[in-house]
């Protein structure tokens, strides 16, 4: 049995990627905020979800994002050494190292899951990252494989 289906929008003219960004409250959220106050433009495709710390970003949230129709997910927090809770990001880094392998084995497209460190001062990096992810996801098209998993059968 094959799960391949024709692309519903082969030219992708109307496709706007949906990107979910899980960010920590103390660095990346402030970085995004800075991008805003500095009037740095970036694509409106990102939905920002603020959490206390990358250490709090449960792996299930990545799955949830895809379940609710995300085409790509970003996880971002403070640079190593800068975590507001000292070590949340170190714990997260370890977890993601293992988690990525599991998803890869399951055939999840790893190009749709992104990890960055963005500090409160890096508004420009936020702008760049979101622009890049949006463009990349636009080229890849909607995440049909996961949408197939989530259709009501």
């Amino acid at each position: 049995m094959t799960h391949k289906q024709p692309h519903p929008d082969p030219d992708m003219t109307t496709f706007e990627p949906k990107i979910v960004a899980y960010v920590c409250n103390w660095c990346t959220y402030l970085g995004a905020d800075l991008a805003g106050t500095n009037r740095l433009e970036y694509p409106p495709n990102v939905r920002i979800i603020r959490l206390p710390c990358t250490g709090r970003i449960d792996f299930n949230l990545i799955v949830k994002a895809f379940e609710t129709g995300a085409d790509a997910v970003l996880v971002s927090g403070c640079h190593p050494g800068d975590c507001h809770y000292t070590s949340g990001n170190y714990h997260a880094r370890r977890r993601w190292t293992l988690f990525r392998e599991l998803l890869d084995t399951l055939g999840i497209e790893m190009d749709r899951i992104h990890f960055t460190w963005i500090s409160a001062a890096e508004g420009r990096k936020w702008q760049q990252v979101i622009t890049e992810i949006t463009e990349k996801t636009r080229q890849m098209g909607p995440y049909l494989a996961y949408k197939r998993i989530c259709r009501v059968s």
């Binding site: 170190y90 880094r93 993601w96 990890f115």
Partner: peptide
């Protein structure tokens, strides 16, 4: 964790 853990996948 170790502060030396590799992070090639994080940008």
């Amino acid at each position: 964790f170790s502060t030396q853990d590799k992070e090639s996948f994080i940008k």
